[in-house]
Nucleic acid binder design. Structure first.
Lengths: 101, 101
DNA sequence: CTGTATCCTCGCCGATACTG
DNA sequence: CAGTATCGGCGAGGATACAG
């Protein structure tokens, strides 16, 4: 999926423990622009990974929340994390050895 | 890692059952150019995921083979496949529903 | 506050030609 | 056979400004 892009996994992590507002996502995702955050969220919404809820208030409040389907993404994500924990040192060693030739 | 790029996972699959030559990779990877295949293989070699063996023959023969470390990549890859098998229909349904609004 | 509208950069990837 | 060299398109992502 779009898991290969730059921001999607970080957005998922930020939403894991519950719904968040647009600006609550922008802060922990240091450096993301509103345009890109919107694109990322829209793509996830389009695929049913999260819901977008607009509250008719002043000032406006929009909350994003993972769907059950969205939560299933943490399964393959956990596998990637496990791989990294187990094998990143070997990868780094290989990279060092390669540089020194 | 570089698993997010266009060709890496396909190269891994092609190498899963044993060593392959440069041209034996080019055929099943329809449409890949030698430049991009070289880049992909070099990146994997650099990270210790495969070995590159040059046989001093005429014509030249170069074989690429996954290392044990390279084989471990199939673990997270399998998790992604499992996710897709289980959840792709839901994703597609969500996408359809989104389009029809 | 929650976006949209423009413009721009940069790097992946492809096409093509050529080399040891 | 197994690449390297060069050029170019294209799209993701960023900077900035503005709107509802």
């Amino acid at each position: 999926m779009r898991i290969g892009d730059k921001w999607t996994t970080k957005v998922l992590v930020c939403l894991r423990s519950g719904p968040r507002r647009f600006s609550e996502l922008k802060v922990p995702l240091r450096g993301i622009t509103p345009k890109v955050l919107t694109e990322t969220l829209r793509a996830l919404e389009r695929d049913g990974m999260l819901t977008r809820t607009v509250h008719a208030e002043i000032p406006p409040r929009v909350e994003y929340e993972l769907t059950p389907l969205g939560h299933t993404l943490f399964e393959p994500l956990a596998a990637q994390c496990a791989w990294t924990r187990a094998n990143l040192p070997d990868l780094l060693d290989a990279r060092d050895a390669y540089e020194r030739r």
